[in-house]
Amino acid sequence: MPKPGPREVMVKVSAVSLNYRDAAMLDGAMDVAPGDVLVPGSDMSGEVVAAGADTTRFKRGDAVISADTMNWIDGPAPPYETNSVPIIGRLAEYVCVHEEQLVSPPQSLTHAESSTLPVAGLTAWFAMVELARVRAGQTVVVQGTGGVSLFAVQFAAAHGARVIVVTSSADKIERAKALGAADGVDRQTTPDWDQAVLAMTGGLGAHQIVEMSGGDNVARSVQALALGGRISLVGLMGSTEMRAPIIPMLFKRAEIVAIGVGHRRAQEDMVAAIDRLGLKPVIDGTYSFEQVPDAIAHLRRGPFGKVVVTF
C-alpha cells in the first residue's frame, strides 16, 4: 500500500482507460523511466482515500481523474519537465499522485466513462477547441474511430461544425453519424479519400483535419485542406514520419500543428462542457483487472472508442 507524501493524495482506483501508448510501452517502442517493473496506464478515475501533508485541492472522499501533464497548468507551451517523464503507473488498485496532477471529473459520468478523458478526451478538446477554435460553418475531417477521433467528432459537432469521418467501414461511418458526423468516407473502398472530401465540399476542402496516421497520409490531408486550413497532427498509426508536398502547403497557407494532450485548465474546461452538453464517451470494451491481457489485445485490434479496465 503506497503512502502519500506532502501535497499528494492516495487514490483508490475505480477505472483505467487504455491508450495505444500503453501497448507501445509494453513493446519497448517508447522510453519509460528506468527500473525493473513497468506499470502501464496513465488515465484513471477514482476516489481519494488519504491525503498527505499540506494538501489543499482535494480531500478524502473526493472523486478525481488524472491530469496527464506534469506542471502544465495553463499557457501556450509546457515546461520542459512535462515531457521529460511519461505519466504511467496508474494501472493499480491504489496510487499516490501529486494534487496538481488531478482534476474533478464530470458529475454526469461514471468512473469508467471519466477515465477516458485525461488523454483521449483532452487531446481532441485541445486540438478542436483550445487551439483551433472550431466553430459553426467549418468543415472538419476526422480520421479513424478510436478514442481521440470519436471525441473530436463529438466536440466539433457540438460546436456546429460539419464533420466528415474517414474510416475503414460503412458500419463505422454509420456509428460515427450517430455521434454527430454528417458524412463519411470508407477508405477501404475509396483510398483517394482526399478527392472524396473535395467533392463533398464543392472543391473548397476542409477547414480542419485531425490527422491520425502520419506517413504518406499527410499528403492526402494537405490535398483535402481548404485555403488557410489546419491539420492537427495527433496520431502515428501508419508511420512515425510524415511526408507531404510543400508547394500545395504554401499555396493553401496550411498549418500543421502537433498535438500532445494539453494543460490542466483546458481539461477543466472540457469537464465543464461535458457536463453542460451531456456528452458521453464511447467505450468499446470493459474488462476486469484480471483481464488486462484481453484488454490489451482489444486495444491492438483497434477499438471503436475506448477500452477500459475496471476494479
Rank of each mutant, 00 (worst) to 15 (best):
S232G: 00
A152E: 13
G52H: 12
I296D: 02
S84D: 08
A33Q: 10
A272P: 01
Q267D: 01
D36H: 14
V308L: 07
E174F: 08
G137F: 05
T123G: 01
P76A: 09
I246E: 02
P76H: 08
P78L: 12
M212W: 00
V49N: 13
N83H: 08
G260Y: 07
A244L: 14
V307Q: 12
Q138V: 06
G147A: 12
V282I: 15
R135T: 10
A226F: 06
A206D: 09
G278A: 01
V148D: 00
V165R: 14
C96K: 12
Y80R: 13
A132T: 06
L38S: 02
V13N: 09
S169T: 14
G202R: 15
L236Y: 02
G146S: 12
E99N: 11
R7C: 06
I87R: 11
D36V: 02
L38H: 02
A178G: 10
G52K: 12
D62C: 09
D269I: 03
V234T: 10
P86N: 07
A29F: 05
T82S: 14
A152I: 12
L277C: 01
V165G: 03
S17P: 09
R21L: 05
A161Q: 06
R133H: 15
V97K: 02
F155P: 12
Q107D: 03
S239I: 10
A156V: 07
K172Q: 11
F251N: 09
D183A: 11
L225P: 02
L91S: 04
A120I: 03
Q291T: 01
G121F: 01
I247K: 13
D294M: 13
M200W: 11
V185R: 09
I259R: 02
G184F: 06
A178T: 06
A23H: 10
A120H: 08
R162L: 05
P106T: 10
E174Q: 12
P248G: 11
V163R: 11
I164K: 10
S17Y: 04
M1V: 14
V185L: 10
A67I: 08
D43V: 07
A297Y: 04
T189R: 15
V119P: 00
A77F: 08
S108G: 07
A224E: 08
L277G: 01
A254I: 00
Y287P: 10
D22F: 13
E290F: 00
V163D: 05
I164Y: 06
I164F: 11
L91R: 07
S104G: 04
G278T: 04
V48S: 05
D22S: 14
R276E: 10
V261I: 14
F311H: 15
E8S: 04
D74K: 15
H263Q: 02
P106F: 04
P79H: 08
M200I: 09
N71Q: 15
V307M: 09
M44C: 12
I296E: 00
V140S: 05
S104Y: 07
E93S: 11
L109P: 04
I164N: 05
L204T: 11
V37A: 00
G285N: 07
V103I: 15
A132G: 02
R264W: 00
A196L: 14
G89A: 12
G28N: 14
Q195H: 11
M44G: 00
